[in-house]
């Protein structure tokens, strides 16, 4: 089981990548930043970075404006 944003629980499966997790959550914001156990995952690694079972994942939506 993976916990996202201290709230959502997503069923873990073998070989699950960050992108698989985002797809499972139907997370379709264009610009996000992701952490696993507090460490940032660069966007170009979403397709290859495995999410270990039991991970706590953070997903932040980045909106324009500053």
């Amino acid at each position: 089981m993976i916990t996202v944003n201290d709230r959502d629980r997503i069923e873990w499966r073998e070989g699950m990548t960050v992108q698989d997790l985002l797809d499972a959550m139907r997370y379709d914001y264009a610009l996000i930043t992701v952490t696993i156990e507090g460490a940032l995952v660069p966007e170009d690694e979403y397709d290859i970075r495995a999410v270990p079972d039991g991970s706590r994942v953070g997903v932040f939506h980045l909106a324009h404006g500053g």
Partner: peptide, 15 residues
Amino acid sequence: SGKIHVVGDEESDMS
């Protein structure tokens, strides 16, 4: 999360 802190509503857009 870790060393990253994000303030705001994470939704409203500057449009």
